[in-house]
């Protein structure tokens, strides 16, 4: 019988935040269409390193296994991406796995990304409805409008765009492209827009849009191809307008919704 084809996985491990870093190597049996999560499960079933030493299974996060829940982001060959959709066939070997570096480590490949959810809260990323009672339909929306909003609404909060962003670091509180994009989404929604002013003010504060240097690394790693460049530019424009209008003592600035509706020839 022919020996199974195998390949090497090198994993950066840390049993807990205060423990020391160790690199471990594993030899994995090759199968077509294998993804990184399946490799990690192989290791859990047989936690033995390439050198033949017993070890613990790797800690990691994963849920949907189809790149929609956002859980499994990690550095794969140095690049932030989702482990479930990273197919071994397409990766250079040996494959290197490391946890994301911009978030507090929990264990091995597991990190704590709750800061992103906190920032969504801080930026009031929701539509303020009156209640869940049956009070009729929502605002009408043109198909064009929906086609702009929907792609933005597909953010899976994976954090890859924060990981790659040079401006997300220990010295800034920069919220990152994912959050800016959500601010744009809610400012654009006819009802969400009612909080636009507060969002823009938060965006003008510490960690807001002015921290972004427009280097556009973020857009390259987004697994959902979200138009982050447009979102950053749009929020920049809204913030500038808001500042100018504020300065002129107007109570409310024009928003992307007005702009976009105008562009589409819709009368408010």
């Amino acid at each position: 019988m022919m020996a199974d084809k195998t390949f090497i996985l090198r994993i950066k491990r840390q049993a807990a935040p205060q423990e020391r870093v160790v690199w471990e190597e594993f030899e994995i049996r090759y199968r077509p269409h294998l993804n990184i999560i399946t490799c990690l499960r192989d290791i859990a079933e047989k936690p033995i390193t390439r050198a033949g030493d017993g070890t613990t299974p790797i800690s990691y996060d994963a849920n949907c296994l189809e790149e929609i829940c956002g859980a499994c982001a990690m550095l794969i060959n140095g690049y932030p991406r989702q482990a479930c959709s990273a197919l071994v066939d397409n990766l250079e070997k040996p494959i290197r796995l490391e946890p994301l570096t911009k978030f507090p480590l929990i264990r091995d490949l597991q990190v704590d990304r709750s800061i992103m959810f906190e920032n969504l809260k801080r930026m009031k990323c929701w539509v303020p409805i009156d209640g869940t009672y049956a009070i009729g339909p929502g605002p009408r929306m043109s198909p064009e409008q929906q086609q702009i909003g929907y792609p933005m609404a597909r953010c899976i909060t994976c954090g890859n765009c924060l990981e790659i962003c040079p401006k997300v670091n220990d010295h800034t509180q920069f919220v990152g492209a994912a959050i800016i994009n959500q601010v744009r989404l809610f400012n654009m929604h006819p009802t969400g827009n009612m909080h636009a002013r507060e969002r823009l003010e938060a965006m003008m504060g510490p960690g807001g849009i002015q921290d972004c240097d427009n280097a556009m690394n973020c857009v390259k790693v987004c697994p959902k191809s979200i138009p982050l460049t447009e979102s950053n530019n749009e929020i920049n424009r809204q913030v500038l307008k808001h500042a100018v209008w504020d300065w002129l003592n107007f109570s409310e600035g024009p928003t992307e919704r007005d702009e976009e509706w105008k562009r589409l020839g819709i009368q408010k």
Partner: peptide, 12 residues
Amino acid sequence: DLLDRMGVMFNR
């Protein structure tokens, strides 16, 4: 209707 009011980007 409720989901629509919450801002779900339903196709139109």
